[in-house]
Amino acid sequence: MYYSYFGLRQAPFKITPDTRLFFPGGNRGAVLEALVYAIATGEGMVKVVGEVGSGKTMLCRMLERELPENAEIVYLANPSLSPDNILHAIAFELHLPVAGSEDRLKVMHALQEYLVRKHAENRRIVAFVEEAQSMPLETLEEIRLLSNLETQDEKLLQIVLFGQPELDESLMNPHIRQLKERITYSFYLHPFSIAEVRDYLSSRLRASGYKGMGVFTRAAIRSLTRYSKGLLRRINILADKSLLAAYAGGEIKVRTRHVRRAARDTEFVTKPGAAVLAMALSFCLALAAIGWFAWQRFIPVSALVEDTRLFKDVPLSGAIGRGLEGADSPKQP
């Protein structure tokens, strides 16, 4: 592979979250600090929204690492949980002695007893809900009810919702407006700019052992930003393939042609041929629509000559005139 060729001791652009390679730029570090603060101060519910591949999972792993030792984490990674199943899922993660056949009331009672006991021990229970945008509305409403578990001064269960922008659309539903009102902090993970992509690439390479000058040219960084749309997962995929292309060509710099080659080998990038074909198809459909519209409005000459009285006072000439005269004249034997 290209690792030793570029003086790297590990893969710099793996798509699996590696907290050792966390990049605090692009507002990620500020969001992480705000999340730690919100949980440390006992805020009940927090929301983090970002596009697919914007770094939500990495942020989730970093949050777990940065929280104080008295925090106990519950992961809810299955978005298809029903309202009853989510209670059992939390009980299972907390190792509560609750059978799968127990009804909702008993599970809620056992969970509340556990949370009260942990609160007395000065411990915090924090639930990380991933892919929250795919959860049924009824399950999101159940999460709101869980946020009602509290003492006189603090929430017993703190909840962090991680989701795609569709989560905000779900929260606009009037049936769960009370859940939206319970969210005290909301954060959005924006795509990276060209400058942030440049710093991100450099940070990852340095953390992976690279000690030379910049590997990616400025033009290559602009091209990579355009193809990736500033999304971290796409940046990682394209950067990895671009480094491989430069290595295969025996070059020590990643240039625009290497990024283009990587983009051609990547599913999420629209292929130029496909774009041209789509444009050509759209053009043909537009022409067909115009032709159909014109045909609908066209009145053939035969319709006009059905009653020749329309033309008795109109001088006619040319082929149309001769045609009409022929139509009025009796056929010669």
Score class of each variant (00 low, 15 high):
Met1Glu: 13
Met1Tyr: 05
Tyr2Ser: 09
Tyr2Pro: 08
Tyr3Thr: 12
Ala11Asp: 04
Pro12Leu: 10
Lys14Glu: 14
Asp18Pro: 01
Asp18Asn: 13
Phe22Glu: 09
Asn27Arg: 10
Arg28Pro: 00
Gly29Ile: 09
Ala30Tyr: 09
Val31Arg: 00
Leu32Phe: 08
Leu35Ala: 07
Leu35Phe: 06
Gly42Ala: 12
Glu43Leu: 15
Glu43Asp: 12
Met45His: 04
Val48Thr: 01
Val49Gln: 00
Glu51Gln: 14
Gly53Gln: 06
Thr57Asp: 11
Thr57Gln: 13
Leu63Asn: 03
Leu67Ala: 13
Leu67Cys: 10
Glu69Asp: 11
Asn70Met: 10
Glu72Asp: 08
Val74Ile: 14
Val74Pro: 06
Asn78Ile: 09
Asn78Gly: 02
Ser80Pro: 00
Ser82Pro: 04
Pro83Phe: 07
Pro83Asp: 05
Leu87Trp: 08
Phe92Met: 11
Phe92Asp: 14
Phe92Trp: 11
Glu93Met: 05
Leu94Gly: 01
Pro97Cys: 09
Val98Gly: 01
Ser101Ala: 14
Glu102Thr: 15
Arg104Leu: 14
Arg104Asp: 11
Leu105Ile: 15
His109Asn: 12
Glu113Ser: 13
Arg117Gly: 07
Lys118Met: 13
Ala120Leu: 15
Arg124Trp: 08
Arg124Asp: 08
Phe128Asn: 00
Phe128Ser: 02
Phe128Ala: 01
Glu130Gln: 13
Ala132Gln: 05
Gln133Cys: 08
Met135Asn: 06
Thr139Gln: 04
Glu141Tyr: 03
Glu142Leu: 04
Ser147Glu: 06
Leu156Val: 12
Leu156His: 06
Val160Thr: 00
Val160Met: 07
Leu161Cys: 05
Leu161Glu: 03
Gln164Asp: 03
Gln164Asn: 05
Glu166Phe: 08
Ser170Gly: 01
His175Gln: 11
Lys180Pro: 01
Ile183Pro: 03
His190Ala: 15
Ile194Tyr: 08
Glu196Lys: 08
Glu196Leu: 07
Val197Tyr: 05
Tyr200Arg: 07
Leu201Gln: 02
Ser203Cys: 07
Arg204Thr: 03
Arg204Ser: 02
Leu205Ala: 02
Ala207Ile: 03
Ser208Cys: 11
Gly212Pro: 02
Val215Ile: 15
Phe216Pro: 00
Ile221Val: 15
Ser223Cys: 14
Thr225Lys: 08
Tyr227Arg: 11
Ser228Phe: 01
Lys229Phe: 01
Gly230Pro: 05
Leu231Trp: 01
Leu231Gly: 00
Leu232His: 04
Leu232Thr: 15
Leu232Glu: 00
Arg233Cys: 06
Arg233Asn: 06
Arg234Leu: 02
Asn236Glu: 03
Ala239Ile: 04
Asp240His: 09
Ser242Ala: 15
Ala248Ile: 14
Glu251Trp: 05
Ile252Leu: 11
Val254Ala: 12
Arg255Ile: 14
Arg255Pro: 00
Arg257Trp: 05
Asp265Tyr: 12
Val269Arg: 07
Val269His: 07
Val276Trp: 13
Leu277Thr: 10
Ala278Pro: 00
Met279Gly: 00
Phe283Pro: 00
Leu285Tyr: 03
Phe293Cys: 02
Phe293Asp: 02
Trp295Ser: 03
Gln296Cys: 04
Ile299Tyr: 10
Ser302Asp: 11
Ser302Gly: 07
Leu304Arg: 12
Leu304Gln: 11
Phe311Arg: 03
Asp313Val: 02
Ser317Ile: 06
Ala319Ile: 10
Gly321Asn: 06
Gly326Ser: 13
Gly326Gln: 11
Ala327Tyr: 12
Ser329Asp: 13
Gln332His: 11
